[in-house]
């Protein structure tokens, strides 16, 4: 087979006509890399921003703090990695102000993997977001897991070319973030606990409110928008389409393959796993198992197989026993 392959690069056959947008280019076949003509294009459109989230669907996005962890995540089947300074479980344990990751670390993670690299910025900290855009991360997570930088304002995400994902505990919060320019939403859950109960609460609530808007009389949508404290146009869109205008992932407290499959069955379009992987006994194996359970979320036999022999999960905290000031989900509004 190999010798039969007549590579264009060797053969230099007929020129290619009708190519590259509005320009008619007669590039010889071996000249693929030499063409000087740039096809006209639009970058950083909302379609392009939300489009990457579409491509992450059905996937697992894993928190990593080092290039080594990023490589393990990629090899295990992560659809993307999230670079941050400390995983939520360590932020809880050590306290102090949690900030954007060191640019040196982000660059090293970008060099270690070929999958998308996301990174967290503090709520309202638009300069951290500018730095992350300058580093060319693929997505910025304006995250409640870090210490908020502004008590009144989230980042104006329309001002950026890089896309943003934001957390939400209910539909109103999700639509406010989308109104500010977020191209992807994740339900917040309670990060760093290993307790899925808050993730389930937030995901169920968002999905329930979306279904409710689908059933509301059109004349009642302005009132619904007022109650949700959300932009009317987005409320109308949800009512019309019966779904969130952007991709919805689930985050916060997922620790097992069964956790991932459960939120997928509840309508999440993919999952974020933070401390759940690299705070467990065997991160590589657990990461693979969570990826498998996320793909085969409707197949209990596969979830059972994936759940077998994973070693100890992360050390967990029951969210209902946390003091109010220890909760991360109420950050942002």
């Amino acid at each position: 087979m190999q010798e039969k392959r007549r590579l264009l690069a060797l053969d230099a056959p007929a020129p290619l006509g009708r190519v590259s947008g509005s320009k008619l280019t007669f590039a010889m076949a071996e000249d693929f890399s030499l063409s000087g003509d740039q096809t006209p294009r639009d970058e950083a459109t909302f379609t392009v921003k939300a489009g990457l989230a579409e491509m992450l669907k059905g996937g697992v996005i894993m928190d990593v703090v080092t290039p080594e962890q990023a490589k393990i995540a990629e090899d295990a089947g992560a659809a993307a990695v999230m670079a941050l300074e400390r995983v939520p479980a360590d932020i809880r344990r050590d306290g102090g102000v949690a900030r954007m990751s060191d640019p040196v670390m982000i660059r090293a993670i970008q060099e270690a993997v070929t999958i998308p690299v996301m990174a967290k910025a503090r709520i309202g900290h638009f300069v951290e977001a500018q730095v992350l855009e300058a580093l060319e991360v693929d997505y910025v997570d304006e995250s409640e897991v870090l210490t908020p930088a502004d008590e009144a304002n989230h980042i104006d995400k329309w001002a950026f070319s890089v896309p943003f994902v934001c957390g939400a505990t209910n539909l109103g919060e999700a639509l406010r973030r989308i109104g500010e320019g977020a191209a992807m939403i994740r339900s917040k859950g309670e990060a760093g606990t290993g307790d899925i109960v808050e993730a389930v609460r937030h995901l169920r609530l968002i999905r329930r409110e979306v279904r409710r808007l689908g059933a509301v009389d059109e004349g009642e949508l302005p009132t619904a928008a007022k109650e949700l404290q959300a932009p009317l146009e987005l409320v109308r869109q949800v009512g019309r389409e019966g779904r969130l205008p952007v991709v919805l992932f689930c985050a916060g407290g997922l620790a097992t393959p069964a956790d991932a499959a459960m939120v997928m069955q509840l309508g999440a379009e993919g999952v974020f796993v933070g401390s759940g992987i690299f705070k467990s006994e065997d991160p590589e194996r657990r990461a693979r198992a969570i990826v498998e359970a996320t793909t085969h979320f409707n197949d209990p036999a596969r979830i059972a197989a994936a759940s077998t022999g994973l070693g100890q999960p992360m050390t967990s905290l029951e969210s209902s026993k946390l003091e109010p000031e220890q909760l991360l989900a109420p950050r942002g509004w």
Binding site: A29, V48, L52
Partner: peptide, 30 residues
Amino acid sequence: GPVHAVFIRAPWVRVCGARVEVLGSVDGHP
């Protein structure tokens, strides 16, 4: 008419065999 094409962290074709017909290119890359 033209196709509206959305490229997300997209690949291109570096080399193609003789049986392969190139239907369209961007910046000279199939």
